[in-house]
Structure formats: C-alpha cells, structure tokens
C-alpha cells in the first residue's frame, strides 16, 4: 500500500517536472496558469479582456497589452494572445518602414497563440480587424520582417494597414 502510493506520487511528480521542462514557464503565473490550462481549468479575466479589446480598437496599444496581460497572465488563452500580437502589428506598421522590434514581438506572440490554440487553428470573428486568422497575421508579420527588393517599391506608400 505504502509502496504503491509512493510510486504513484513519484510518477505524478516526475510528470510535473517533465511538464515544467517541456513548457519552460517564465513566471510563476505562467507555471500555475499552464498547469490549470493542462487540466482545462484556466479562464481569462473577462473584464480585463474586454477592456483590452476596447483599448485595441481605440489604437491605445500599450494600454491594450497591459489589460490583455492582466486578463491572461499565464499566456494560455489563444484569442487574447492573438489580440496582443495584432496590437504589435498595428503599432509597428508604418507606411515607409515597419518597427522591426515590435513586429518580432508580434511574430513571437502569434506563433505562441497558434501553438496553444486547439488544433493549431485560430479564427477570431471580429469585424473590426481585417486579418481574422492567426495564419494571416503570422504571414503579414513575417513579410514585414523580410528585407528584400520589394521594400524599395514606391507603391508601398499606397499600402494600408490591415
């Protein structure tokens, strides 16, 4: 009985450690949130999420990320992470040139959002945004970070932010 219980506890503890090393949480919030998400018990703070989306629509991107960060401290909600990535895109987009640092953060975030989304598919049916899937956003951010001859195309000045 004692040995069986000990073996079970050891196996659970070893599984937890393996999970930690596989997921590499950066903060305690990510650690606890990730554990909760793995058993389906993680929920975002809905009020902070709504506030973040409102800031996002008002073009207040710093404020939007702060609110979305409060809503999803463990970075386990794919939709919230999608909005965070989108905020980096909109803030970093420029008619003459893009802010590479913001685009890089956006790309990292949208890749994370895709990784945690069920089936690695993420559709956000928000009429206020033009790119409604994480794949489109990722492609747009990747294109923005690519340096090639098309950067010199004068037609670029006519491009519009999505």
């Amino acid at each position: 009985m004692i040995r069986g219980a000990g073996l079970l506890l050891t196996a659970l503890y070893a599984a937890f450690i393996t999970w930690v090393y596989a997921h590499q949480p950066r903060t305690v919030a990510q650690l606890t949130g990730g554990m909760a998400a793995s058993v389906g018990a993680y929920q975002v703070d809905r009020n902070s999420f709504n506030q973040g989306v409102q800031f996002f629509r008002n073009e207040q991107f710093e404020e939007a990320r702060a609110a979305l960060g409060r809503a999803d401290p463990a970075r386990q909600d794919a939709t919230t992470q999608f909005y965070v990535a989108y905020s980096y895109y909109r803030q970093g987009w420029g008619r003459m040139y893009n802010d590479d640092a913001l685009f890089a953060k956006g790309l990292e975030t949208v890749q994370h959002a895709i990784a945690i989304a069920p089936g690695n598919r993420l559709d956000v049916p928000d009429p206020g945004i033009e790119m409604r899937t994480a794949d489109e956003l990722r492609a747009e951010l990747s294109r923005g970070l690519t340096k090639d001859a098309s950067d010199l195309n004068p037609m670029r000045f006519l491009a519009r932010r999505k």
Binding site: R3, G6, T10, Y13, I17, V20, Q24, P25, R26, L31
Partner: peptide, 29 residues
C-alpha cells in the same frame, strides 16, 4: 524508499536546472 528518496532526488532534478538571469527575463529550466 517509496517517498523520501525519490521525492528528494526528483526535487534536486527539478531545481538543479533552474536559472534566473540577472536581466529579469524570466525563469529558465
């Protein structure tokens, strides 16, 4: 044998890879 030793050694294994960079960029395992 069932509790003390495996849990102690596993704790060592878990914490042995822990690093916190001085830049405050978050935990590493």
């Amino acid at each position: 044998e069932s509790f003390t030793l495996p849990l102690l050694f596993l704790s060592v294994a878990a914490a042995g890879g822990f690093r916190m960079p001085s830049g405050g960029t978050g935990m590493q395992f």
